[in-house]
Design a protein around this nucleic acid. Sequence first.
DNA 1: ACAAATCAACGAAACGTTACGATTCGGCTC
DNA 2: GAGCCGAATCGTAACGTTTCGTTGATTTGT
Lengths: 362, 362
Amino acid sequence: MLYLFAERRVYNPPGRLRLLNMRDRPKFTMRDVARLAGVSTSTVSAVINDAVPVTPERKNRVLSAMEALDYHPDEVARSLKKGRTKAIGVIVPDITNAFYPEVIRGLEAAAREHGYAVLLCDSTEDPANEHDHLSTLFARRVDGVILACCASSTAYEAIVRRRFPVVFVDRLPEALTEGSVSTDNIGAGHMATRHLIDLGHKRIAMLVGHLGLSPHRDRLEGFRKAMQEANLPIRDEYLISGQVQMTHGFDATLQVLNLHEMPTAIMASNNKLLLGLLQALNERSIQIPKQLSILGFDDYAWNKYFSPTLTAVAQSTNEMGRRAFELLLRIIEREPGQELPEKQIRLSAELRIRTSTAPPAN
Amino acid sequence: MLYLFAERRVYNPPGRLRLLNMRDRPKFTMRDVARLAGVSTSTVSAVINDAVPVTPERKNRVLSAMEALDYHPDEVARSLKKGRTKAIGVIVPDITNAFYPEVIRGLEAAAREHGYAVLLCDSTEDPANEHDHLSTLFARRVDGVILACCASSTAYEAIVRRRFPVVFVDRLPEALTEGSVSTDNIGAGHMATRHLIDLGHKRIAMLVGHLGLSPHRDRLEGFRKAMQEANLPIRDEYLISGQVQMTHGFDATLQVLNLHEMPTAIMASNNKLLLGLLQALNERSIQIPKQLSILGFDDYAWNKYFSPTLTAVAQSTNEMGRRAFELLLRIIEREPGQELPEKQIRLSAELRIRTSTAPPAN
DNA sequence: ACAAATCAACGAAACGTTACGATTCGGCTC
DNA sequence: GAGCCGAATCGTAACGTTTCGTTGATTTGT
């Protein structure tokens, strides 16, 4: 029997050279370490993964052999063998929107603490890109995905169909049954509106953003709730929905300003719409907050340096990222039967009152 | 001989079950596709990689078998076999600095066009983190690395020692011999200073940032050059260096304002220092540009909405990312002997003049 | 008509790990 | 001293691909 295996060598096609794919310096493998330490590869593996006990003497021999050869286990081979890559995919709709880098920072730190790598994808608000990214992430066998989906996303079905570990952040698909972490946007919208109502505003407009995106839909719902509670009329011409970029904020603002009864306050449902709003008001030389109060969602360092300083609803971006990863990890590691204690996590927002909101003029 | 191999089966330890590591639905492999299509796995491989010719009839059989099983090649196995992962690592010092997401967007788009995935790492300006990230990227066998290094980085030696494909972006290590893409920061500093000089400023201060970082060092050099050309004195007390965050900008500004002969203009060497500068001026109620002109590096959408609007030097962030990837790709794919036509790429910056700079008061 | 060349397809080894059954070796009990 | 046990170690198959030498079948050249 030993003979038999020895014989196998004979069938190595002769004259085949072992080609190194490394550019120059040969990389060492477990086999080299094993040879140098005078043990089997299994022992080296045992030392690396320290699951199985190894006597201290041998362990040291292996360790110093690893040291001597500057050996580092090949994660690719390990992934193939284990069926786990220790990598996750993250898809965001627009990495130049300052909101997402903050989420990513939290997420990446948490991932790294657990030895996970992050594959970053930017869908540029295009469902086709999102779909492509998802395919390549699947092909690369990531252990899970964190997804802030874009409008008309088809990702949800694709993922659920495959029962792939996923956590949605910020933007959630409708009829969600998977894990998610998001801001309590209904509460946030309510809180923001309530602030304006408390100041005495009755005619409040909102640059709603895209109704196909859950944060915007929810903030609108919060707005409606607050208005109804205060018995204030909700006027359709004050609610401008559409897209989420700066130019849309600009156009929407002009549309509102051209109404023959102008609102006394305008809220913008994200930071890019807010910039468009500011641009339009600038152009029309409208004074804030004398003529008009304004309020935004998403709060960044520079909001404090606009003139006037901007009242805004701040989200816990860093925590959102961190919690999203932690939830994903639990989903990845759970046993088949096991259910999760909490799947839909909602983070509360915080209103930061500055000088862009004030009681209305009249 | 055939016998011999047939015999091997016998030595399969009996009773060993093939464990699926998939959660539920079994994933299909090339073998399944081959069986269904009635061809060998090599033929399936040939179809997938279409390097070797395959007759149309078989090709179609394979294709429809792939379709039927919803088969997607396992990139992990492919990577192991090929010794190439089609993945690159990107290390940035601070992803919440709006500069880097813009670079990343360009980079990621270019990478995706070439089928490369991006492993994102944030070193949070800490060389120890940077070093860790580099190790895990090596272990994961990425094909190359794009690196914006942090101060006191030790990455350079580690990479050069291993002869690992790398492109530095934005922040370059000293004595660089590897590929790089960066802004012509000397030119940018010169251009910015020149603009202030042309307006009539003679006493110009600069929040220099960190002298261990090439962009800051270079912008200072540009400043010096412009001052010398104009025969203006360079006063040490007007050049405050140190760290690069907002608080440092704030402190540095106060330091300058407390001098008994104040400058008539201040430049901030990055966007975070600029925010600190604004905060300090706000606090001291100093009017811009009446009492003081200010100018920043890095230009973002919101710079247009500060009051006054901010004059700034804009960099080609997107292009920086794209070019960095393209250069890295050439390095990865080059043959051992071959040299590269251009290794150190410098992108020119653009001065955007707005209302925060004006002739000095007196 | 036959050797040589071309071509598509196949089979098996190999990439660098891990998993797991088999083996070895003390130490213990009776 | 035979028999047994557990712990440490070993050897090999397997993960899912690609690579490449080999094999027939078909075409080409003379």
